[in-house]
Simulated assay, not measured.
Amino acid sequence: MSSVFSHYVKNLLLVIIVTGLLTNCKSSQNPQKYIGTSLADQDFMYQYSIIDALMAGVFDGDLTIASLKTKGDFGVGTFNKVDGELMINNGKVYKVSHDGSVKEAHDMDSTSAAFVKFFKADTVITIAGENLSYEKVQEHLVSILNPNGIYALRITGKFSEMTTRAASPAKPPYKTLSEHLKTNQAVFELKNTQGICNGFLLPPYLARTNVPGFHLHYVADDLKSGGHIFKFKTNSIRVEIDLAKGFIIENNTNPEFKAVNLKPDRGEELKKIE
């Protein structure tokens, strides 16, 4: 009887182990399914590649604009070869080129770095003041928002002054981004322009993966100007604030990413070009 009972126990344990393994396999698939179902429902920020890779010269990626649109309807980034500035608003992807032109990007274009979200404002505020500067706007927002939050920001208004830039395309072999921008960016001094500033306010703990602090791009309502924002002046703006629950990073899938040295801290370089 004891040998029969022992054999029965062994078989029972085998069934339990196999069942457990199957259960674990199913449960391990659930997070992947969850992540892929709907970024809009999850309320996450999604990013393709990391800022340190772009800073180090990883200027090409494999994510098409058509695919990027499935990750968010709002955001900022760049295109392959850092050819201009990318901004998404209400699902439309705009490209601000180094010649100052603004065009809707083609779905077959690709990005080497992009930070996007499905935008839904949690809070809307108005900030007003004579000759209100970008710096003052930043100070006000920092004073009212939690420093550990991940915020998508849409700012609309009329701007008496707006300084932006757009990078011109790089040619291989690529330099670092800071080296490239020394001689390959156009700076635009815009006057009396009206439009939309889209981007993010991110906490310090995202440094080396994204841009800590403020990172906004501009597109004018008439689609005649835009770019990465350095500064502006206004008398009144409307600020829509969307707090993200978290973030998802997809590594750049281009072979350049696997070969780049990501050990150096490029924080100081980033401050100079932002």
Rank of each mutant, 00 (worst) to 15 (best):
M1W: 10
S3C: 04
V4L: 11
Y8F: 14
I17N: 01
T19L: 07
L21H: 12
L21A: 11
L21E: 12
L21F: 12
L22Y: 03
C25V: 13
K26H: 15
K26D: 15
S27M: 15
S27N: 15
Q29Y: 15
I35R: 13
G36P: 10
T37P: 03
S38C: 11
S38P: 06
A40C: 06
Q42V: 09
F44V: 12
Y46F: 15
Y48P: 08
Y48R: 04
S49I: 10
D52E: 14
D52N: 14
A53Q: 08
A53W: 04
G57W: 00
V58F: 09
F59K: 05
D60A: 06
D60V: 08
G61A: 10
S67T: 13
L68M: 11
T70H: 14
K71R: 13
D73M: 02
D73V: 01
F74V: 09
V76N: 00
G77C: 05
N80F: 01
K81A: 06
V82H: 00
D83R: 00
D83S: 00
E85L: 05
L86H: 04
I88C: 05
I88F: 00
K92Y: 10
K92E: 12
V93N: 03
V93F: 08
Y94H: 06
K95F: 06
V96G: 04
S101K: 07
V102N: 00
E104F: 08
D107F: 09
M108F: 15
S112M: 02
A114G: 00
V116Y: 04
V116S: 09
K117H: 14
F119D: 05
F119L: 07
T123I: 14
T126H: 08
T126D: 04
A128M: 05
A128H: 01
G129L: 04
S133L: 02
S133T: 14
Y134S: 09
Y134D: 05
Y134M: 05
K136F: 06
K136M: 13
E139N: 14
H140P: 05
L141E: 02
N146S: 07
N148V: 13
A152S: 12
A152E: 09
L153A: 12
R154I: 06
G157R: 13
G157E: 11
K158N: 13
E161A: 08
M162F: 03
M162D: 03
R165S: 04
A166H: 02
S168T: 09
P172V: 02
Y174S: 02
K175Y: 11
T176S: 09
H180P: 00
K182F: 02
T183I: 02
N184F: 01
V187M: 05
F188Y: 03
E189M: 06
G195Y: 11
G199K: 08
P203K: 08
L206E: 06
A207V: 10
R208H: 12
R208F: 11
R208Y: 13
V211C: 03
P212K: 01
F214H: 08
L216Q: 09
H217P: 09
A220N: 01
D222C: 03
S225V: 10
K231E: 08
F232S: 06
F232D: 02
S236Y: 13
I237R: 10
V239G: 13
D242K: 14
A244K: 09
F247R: 15
E250D: 07
N261K: 10
N261T: 02
N261W: 07
K263V: 15
D265P: 14
R266H: 12
E268C: 09
K272S: 06
